[in-house]
Design a protein around this nucleic acid. Structure first.
Lengths: 226, 226
DNA sequence: GTGTGATTTGACCAAATGGTCAAGATGCAA
DNA sequence: TTGCATCTTGACCATTTGGTCAAATCACAC
């Protein structure tokens, strides 16, 4: 028994995917994100994920060989979206504009994909058992690179001297906080990022705090109305 | 069978606790904090907690009637420590000093009790099923009160106009981030808050970012060396 | 020391759950 | 239509796990 094209793959999707496979994998990953982000890895059940995806548990296990495989696929699926914004920091831009754009993107993502944020937070809080290697290689490389960008801005006298890595951590912490702790935010303010007005207010508050903290003018002089 | 003093209580400890009870409850809560923070509620097992506490599962269930009871007791146990720093914000102090002191305390707690931070984060991320009522009442009251303090500083022209609640969220987010995401911090910097030098560096970076962002002078003029 | 209640434990149970498997249903190319 | 591979599922299994219980042990007041 050769079984060349039989079992669908777990994480990689090597091009050859039937329409049905494409659709079902997508349904599963969507359901899995909801469950894993809500209950954590241990709290989520394969049965519930399958039900949410509209299929039997057996069928789900036909597409992913184990619960852990679903989890890893889900993580892989969101990781790219998650790290994308940082890549857009351009050295030749003005620091205020660049950082503001970065913060805006991070908040936008927190607003649009809060479940992904919570899944990521869960994973890291519990020791990043699955994605630690990625943090140590890809993310580390990216952060080092962007720290140099910030350093260059500082060296050029364009912004106050701040530790770049702490600046990045602060941006991550604040922007993700609004997604991860949205229940607490809601309990305290009655609103969260799903409210566009609250999102705008948050973006302004966070951006102006951090940018001014970094010695940058924000909002830009010409934009101010009052 | 009256059983007046038989079963120890779950959450409340109504004074009357034998030496043995005191000690065992304490051992259990310590072990439970370790497990729950590491694995989450579902991932933790009563058996493992009992083993860590040096007793049998049956014995643990003699002290706490259920896994959920242990969890709630653990949460209650850390909650006070968790919320204490905010209470120290004094309206009559100077905003820079008060906020700096608050941030210092929060970071200190993140450094000393990272597991408590992660447990709290886990609970809130998953919807705060146990402590939502507390967030909505006690914490809300406290936050409203402290927002007024910040408002008064703004009204007195002592600091820039910032949304108080977002300022508080930013402080929570940044300080807790270093505990909750310590694995990621370690992966990226090779250090975390358990290193006193890193703690000092973090405190300076976070405090100066946020305070300057709020239009406050930090570090204070007279303290600067360079 | 003795007795009584507090403490401790191993044996045990029922439910939940991840995963297997063989059989059936379905889609599709010839 | 036919044949084959893909897809789907219910029945089933082994393990884990939260929790119960009766019996044994221990602490200590008298």
């Amino acid at each position: 028994m050769v079984e060349l094209s039989g079992q669908p793959q777990d994480i990689l999707k090597p091009a050859g995917l039937s329409r049905i496979q494409e659709k079902n994998r997508s349904l599963i990953l969507e359901a899995a994100l909801g469950e894993f982000s809500k209950k954590g890895f241990s709290g989520a059940t394969v049965e519930k994920i399958a039900a949410d995806a509209g299929m039997s548990k057996s069928n789900l296990l036909y597409y992913f060989s184990s619960k852990e495989a679903i989890y890893n696929a889900t993580l892989a699926h969101i990781l790219e979206v998650w790290l994308a914004p940082l890549k857009t920091l351009k050295p030749d831009g003005e620091p205020a504009q660049e950082l503001a754009a970065y913060i805006r993107q991070k908040i936008e993502i927190s607003a649009r994909f809060p479940e992904a944020s919570r899944l990521f937070a869960n994973e890291v809080i519990q020791g990043a058992p699955q994605i630690l290697p990625i943090l140590q290689t890809d993310l580390k490389r990216l952060v080092v690179e962007k720290c140099k960008v910030i350093e260059s801005w500082i060296a050029a006298g364009k912004m106050r001297r701040v530790d770049p890595v702490h600046l990045i951590f602060t941006i991550w912490a604040t922007t993700q906080h609004y997604a991860d702790f949205s229940v607490q935010i809601m309990a305290l303010t009655g609103r969260d990022l799903s409210d566009p007005a609250f999102q705008a207010e948050t973006e302004l508050a966070v951006t102006s705090l951090i940018l001014n903290g970094a010695g940058l003018d924000w909002p830009p002089e010409e934009d101010r109305t009052e």
